[in-house]
């Protein structure tokens, strides 16, 4: 078996700040993962369909507009509806401390705010990937 971790890096919502998503995508590649990047303005449906077709192990969501409570949860709800809970979901952006437990509860397992290191993210994925 030559298993590689496949990660979907997705930007839901309307904000165009892709510096973080791109840096993370490159870092994950440099850590030996296959990273599918979808570009900007993805609807939850687009993200779910892509996750299915690409058979990813991880979905990394990046959102800096503050719409995370709505959109991250839309996505985890749809993952549950589609029986795709074996996919590890992590998220990054401007996320206030008080939102973190609610997002965890909704199924976003790792939350990485400003100042999280690339190593933190890589380690978290490697330790928590479910399959």
């Amino acid at each position: 078996m030559d298993k590689k971790i496949r990660v979907l890096v997705a930007k839901p919502g309307l904000d165009g700040h892709d510096r973080g998503a791109k840096i993370v995508a490159r870092a994950l590649r440099d850590a030996g993962m296959e990273v599918i990047y979808t570009g900007l303005h993805q609807t939850p449906d687009m993200i779910i369909q892509t996750a299915i077709q690409e058979d990813v192990d991880v979905i990394g969501l990046s959102l800096l507009s503050g719409a995370h409570m709505t959109l991250f949860r839309d996505i985890t709800d749809k993952l549950r509806e589609n029986d795709m809970e074996d996919i590890l979901v992590v998220g990054g952006g401007i996320i206030p401390e008080e939102d973190v437990p609610r997002l965890n509860e909704a199924g976003v397992r790792g939350i990485f705010g400003p100042g999280a290191t690339l190593d933190d993210i890589i380690r978290f994925i490697k330790e928590n990937v479910k399959r």
Partner: peptide, 18 residues
Amino acid sequence: FSGGALLGDRIRMMEVST
């Protein structure tokens, strides 16, 4: 070097992704 890859072709195809 790393065995990883950045797969970005899909960006141009997202309008048909659903």
